[in-house]
Design a protein around this nucleic acid. Structure first.
Lengths: 209, 209
DNA sequence: GAGTGGTCTAGACCACTGT
DNA sequence: CAGTGGTCTAGACCACTCC
């Protein structure tokens, strides 16, 4: 019946012997699942090609590693205030000429490097981050615990390992690495942080549909 | 105030001078967004670490190409009934010893190959597919239009281009390709189809949060 | 057992939109 | 303008769960 028009709420209420409010809630919830389209005056229609929606939780890296049965460890690399390169400026659009906090770190699963975290934080927007000590706690974890989450975007891609990445992952041959770049902004739509996560060779991101 | 307990619905209704039903709907919708936890007798509590959920629509490849402003074209490569290799058998778990429909095809954006589609279909479960002619219509599109969608999973990874992929994408140097592997099953949880989509160099999958 | 959210009813008015 | 869904109210009863 894709494309078909359903009876009005009042008619369905009569047919099922219940209140229109109840019919409304039922249809609303189906519509929220993307299977019905509703318009005032236009009635309720069965969607022709329901969108195939995928959703997944973005786990803390620590949890992702532990849920795979490995021991988690964090390894700090560096933390500096720097003028961001053009690519980061374009992504984060910080105030002109300011320096941002740049943190590099590793997340280990057992003895192996699981993911490389390369993060920029705009301390004009998150001043607390300037005081944080990322030698002991990962920026990933610190931000989740300290900064309310509001929105952002995620970009997934494949990249060839750079020399630095090859050495961190202890590999030689040219290798494809799964890369996630995430931007997080606050409620005023200012970008708090941008992070590039480069996963170990063979990593797969699994998503239910 | 993560962790805090909110007043009861009745109290909030009194405070805001509205009906409890209205408060209930409001809190429900916030709870649906994952920001509140509600329990009978236990009250309504602000969730401590709201899960960072991402959700996105999986577009038809055709739509994805056209929405980027390119002309879509489909190019058939091959279509055979074959005994599936071990990896596919493990994924799809078809009846013992049967042959599956194996289709390879390209989706072009303008003149360029955008994605390579390599698909296996279990015709024991979707007999209609045996009659379909994938020389003209892509399996991707045919399945969306003919087979009701029920569920599945999606696995994203990065892989080094094989020789065949290099030649299809007209590239030489070792290159990392973004790869999506999707499995789709029917309402009885039998696997209808498994597909490997290998995207052109530089492809990024963008997801809103 | 008592307090909380979950869900229903019957009725009302409003907001949008197709004709 | 008329018909549809969107949303509210006031009240009721139920289901779960903590004490």
């Amino acid at each position: 019946m894709p494309g078909d028009l359903l009876p009005t709420e009042a008619e369905l209420a009569a047919e099922f012997g219940c209140a229109r409010t109840t019919v409304n809630r039922a249809l609303q919830s189906i519509a929220d699942d993307g299977l019905l389209e509703r318009k005032r005056k236009g009635g309720t229609r069965v969607v022709v090609h329901p969108a195939r929606k995928a959703s997944f939780n973005i786990p803390l890296i620590r949890r992702e590693i532990e849920s795979r049965g490995y021991t988690y460890a964090y390894k700090f690399i560096s933390q500096k205030r720097e003028h961001p390169p053009k690519t980061i400026r374009a992504l984060m659009n910080p105030a002109h000429g300011v320096r941002l906090l740049h943190v590099k770190a590793l997340h280990l699963a057992g003895e192996k490097v699981f993911v490389i975290e390369d993060r920029w934080i705009d301390t004009a927007i998150v001043p607390e981050a300037a005081e944080a000590d990322f030698k002991e706690i990962s920026p990933n974890q610190w931000l989740v615990e300290n900064i309310p989450f509001n929105g952002g975007d995620l970009s997934l891609s494949a990249s060839i390992a750079t020399e630095e990445e090859k050495s961190l992952f202890s590999i030689n041959s040219p290798l494809a690495l799964f890369t996630a770049e995430r931007r997080t902004h606050n409620s005023e739509h200012a970008t708090i942080t941008a992070v590039r996560l480069v996963y170990a060779p063979g990593y797969r991101m699994e998503i239910g549909l």
